[in-house]
């Protein structure tokens, strides 16, 4: 069931990304990263790293970049976000905003760092672009949490699922 949700959410995120990017400012939001961090925070580290790995690879394949670049960066981000989700209380909008923002920065550092390291692509000084995307992802991420938590019984179901996992 969880795997199906991850597949569906990733497909929806990529379809939306390829659509909204035509109208939004280029790179203002990375919906795939939002799905990865959401899954990691709502579940745990293994879900986070598997979602990140799968979603990143799909993104690599569809972007025409080197396969594994976005896969690796999103795997690391998903894994670390999963650890943050289980070790800290990340239920407040402000703390979620910070996690989404830092996840975007980390994703950019790994992704762009690898490309620069291998001399395949040069990004110059993309600080403003990363900051804008960090805020965009954080706003969308917090909104996604709000919307899903508004669905009837969603919080109870998540608590029940977590307590089952801990036992």
């Amino acid at each position: 069931m969880k795997a199906a949700w991850v597949l569906l959410a990733t497909a929806a995120a990529i379809a939306s990304q390829t659509t909204v990017d035509r109208w939004l400012a280029a790179g203002a939001v990375d919906l795939v990263l939002v799905v990865v961090v959401y899954n990691a925070l709502a579940s745990e580290r293994v879900t986070g790293l598997l979602t990140g790995s799968f979603a990143g690879l799909v993104q690599d394949v569809l972007s025409g970049g080197v396969l594994g670049m976005a896969g690796l960066s999103k795997t690391v981000v998903g894994y670390l976000a999963g650890i943050v989700g289980t070790q800290f209380i990340v239920t407040h909008s402000a703390s979620r905003f910070v996690v989404f923002f830092l996840a975007t920065v980390l994703n950019a550092v790994i992704f762009m760092g690898l490309y620069e390291l291998l001399g395949l692509r040069h990004f110059g000084a993309p600080f403003a672009a990363v900051a804008v995307q960090g805020v965009g992802n954080a706003v969308v991420g917090v909104l996604v949490f709000k919307v899903i938590e508004l669905l009837p019984g969603a919080v109870e179901r998540r608590r029940a699922a977590r307590s089952r996992f801990r036992r």
Binding site: T18, D21, G27, D30, V32, Q59, L62, G64, G65, Q133
Partner: peptide
């Protein structure tokens, strides 16, 4: 459609 990743302009 646009690029699947915001880092590519395709």
């Amino acid at each position: 459609g646009a690029a699947a990743s915001p880092d590519f302009r395709t």
